Amino acid sequence: MDTATQTESLHIVCPQCDAVNRVPAMKLSHTPTCGKCHRELFAGKPVDLTSARFLKHIERSDLPVLVDFWAPWCGPCRQMAPFFEQAAMGLEPMYRVVKVNTEEAQDLAARYAIRSIPTLALFKGGREVARQPGAMDARGIMAWAQQNNPS
């Protein structure tokens, strides 16, 4: 991290209460907590997002947001789930890692034209910057996210 990056503050959406927090970039790895609910901003696991919460997390966060679009009936999705959890531990706090159940959030599946699941999508500044259909292991997920990060 260069000096300018270390002194800038980032907007981080709380995974519990959805409050937008300003966190100095250099303090991301120091277990920051939410100013509203006082819970940790990063738990090392994916955040389950509903349609109502999704846009706030991708539009208001300064971090890249890695999304797993999945469904409970999907075998490859269930196989990838523990790998996605492992990837979350390795990617946070430089990424927000989230899951969207396409059965419950059919509007998001339609809006983002999710044609197969699981599908990974990387968002930055509210827009999708990369997409990868199909199951991957934790190392593959992390490598794909880092390779496609536009920062």
Rank of each mutant, 00 (worst) to 15 (best):
residue 102 T to L: 02
residue 49 L to I: 08
residue 118 P to Q: 05
residue 110 A to W: 01
residue 40 E to F: 08
residue 9 S to D: 09
residue 50 T to Q: 07
residue 148 N to K: 12
residue 34 C to E: 06
residue 19 A to V: 00
residue 117 I to H: 01
residue 70 W to P: 00
residue 59 E to V: 04
residue 27 K to D: 10
residue 4 A to D: 13
residue 74 C to N: 11
residue 133 P to Y: 09
residue 102 T to N: 11
residue 55 L to D: 12
residue 142 M to G: 15
residue 121 A to S: 09
residue 52 A to S: 09
residue 90 G to L: 08
residue 5 T to A: 15
residue 3 T to W: 03
residue 70 W to C: 02
residue 92 E to T: 05
residue 109 A to H: 01
residue 13 V to M: 13
residue 136 M to I: 03
residue 91 L to W: 00
residue 81 A to F: 02
residue 92 E to D: 10
residue 19 A to M: 06
residue 90 G to P: 00
residue 110 A to D: 03
residue 130 A to E: 04
residue 41 L to T: 06
residue 95 Y to T: 02
residue 147 Q to R: 15
residue 119 T to L: 11
residue 138 A to Q: 05
residue 109 A to I: 07
residue 87 A to D: 05
residue 57 H to R: 14
residue 39 R to V: 10
residue 98 V to W: 00
residue 72 P to Y: 00
residue 125 G to P: 10
residue 45 K to H: 04
residue 133 P to H: 11
residue 41 L to A: 06
residue 65 V to N: 03
residue 8 E to K: 15
residue 76 P to T: 03
residue 26 M to V: 04
residue 139 R to V: 04
residue 149 N to T: 09
residue 89 M to I: 05
residue 56 K to D: 03
residue 146 Q to M: 14
residue 78 R to N: 12
residue 59 E to K: 12
residue 139 R to G: 08
residue 107 D to V: 09
residue 98 V to N: 02
residue 13 V to R: 06
residue 99 K to I: 09
residue 67 V to K: 04
residue 139 R to K: 14
residue 14 C to R: 11
residue 132 Q to F: 09
residue 35 G to N: 11
residue 106 Q to K: 14
residue 87 A to F: 02
residue 76 P to I: 01
residue 121 A to L: 07
residue 105 A to C: 13
residue 62 D to Y: 01
residue 87 A to R: 00
residue 27 K to P: 04
residue 19 A to Q: 06
residue 93 P to K: 04
residue 127 R to L: 05
residue 15 P to D: 00
residue 51 S to D: 11
residue 113 A to R: 15
residue 2 D to K: 15
residue 142 M to V: 12
residue 14 C to F: 02
residue 81 A to T: 07
residue 138 A to E: 12
residue 4 A to L: 14
residue 32 P to C: 06
